Amino acid sequence: MTGSTVIRRLVSAAAIVSMVGVGAACNSRDSDGGTGPEQTTATDATPTTTSPTAEATPFTGFLETVDGTKGIVTYKAELPQLKGGATAVRDKFNASVHAALDDYLKPTEDNLPVTVAPGALPEEERSRVSHIGSGVVAGVLLLNIYVEHAAHPFNTVSTTVIDAHTAAPVMITDLFADQKAGLDTVVQAIKAEMAGEDKLADQAPPEPVADQLANWLPDNDGLVFYLPVAHVLGDYYPVTVEWDAIAGVLAPGVREKLTQ
């Protein structure tokens, strides 16, 4: 789904409902978006060399602040970015994150002014480079969107996972030996996690389709999925599916690739 289509649908929805369920797929497009001054904000990703062909300096994650006006869209965002490491991997990751921002810098269907700001989820989760490893690099971009005359602003989530050897995007469907069995197992595990969380008792679980599970990140404990929820809960809620719950459907070597 293109950013233009996403935001056009959200404009109408934001004015009449209190729940936004917009999924932004893991980005795989390059971008020519502009850059701004670097922030020295530290992330929780540990720098490491990614491959035998990597440059002398290891990858380092940081937040880049960009701001400006594009048409009637005013924006400020904190973009998770990489320094150092293999050029192709770094460039693909950085461009993919910029492309996720660009999706929200397009005019709405009603040509209403839009304000884009840094987003935050419950527990103060914000944009960050979440993982730097020998197998993949990963991060999440959180934005807060306000369309003029809407009842309230809403958060959006976009995750990026890039193979540290090939510089190719890693999609949720790449993780399983059998795609259908894998997605079915993930959803069952998500339902079990939601059942144990009081806040999510009345929220609808995702369907076992790639589009509804596209916002994910690797974690030491498992896969973190950002699920669309009611606006009062922050619009998105992270749920972790533990590795043991999906071990039987993962393709060979996937767990090691995502955690090393």
Rank of each mutant, 00 (worst) to 15 (best):
G3Y: 12
T5E: 13
R9P: 12
V11A: 10
A14F: 05
I16G: 13
M19Y: 09
V20E: 11
V22K: 13
A25Q: 13
R29M: 15
D30V: 14
G34M: 14
T41A: 15
P47C: 02
T48D: 12
T49C: 06
T49P: 03
L63T: 08
V66P: 11
K70H: 12
G71T: 09
V73L: 10
Y75N: 01
L79W: 10
Q81H: 15
K83A: 06
G84M: 09
T87A: 05
A88G: 13
R90K: 14
A95R: 02
A99E: 03
L101V: 13
T108P: 03
E109V: 06
E109T: 03
N111H: 08
L112D: 06
V114C: 11
P118C: 11
A120I: 06
L121V: 03
L121D: 02
E123F: 10
E124A: 13
E125Y: 12
S127G: 13
S130Y: 00
S130L: 03
I132M: 04
G135R: 11
G135D: 13
V137R: 01
L142M: 04
I145D: 00
E148R: 05
H149Y: 09
A150S: 06
A150C: 05
A150E: 08
H152K: 10
N155W: 05
N155T: 14
T156D: 02
T156S: 05
V161C: 03
D163M: 00
A168M: 05
A168E: 10
V170E: 01
D174W: 03
A177K: 07
G182N: 00
T185C: 01
V186R: 00
A189K: 00
I190V: 12
A195L: 07
E197H: 08
K199E: 11
K199L: 09
A201L: 08
P206Q: 00
E207T: 06
E207G: 00
V209A: 04
A210F: 02
L217M: 11
N220Q: 07
D221Q: 05
Y226W: 03
Y226L: 02
H231I: 14
W243K: 01
A245W: 04
A245G: 10
V249D: 01
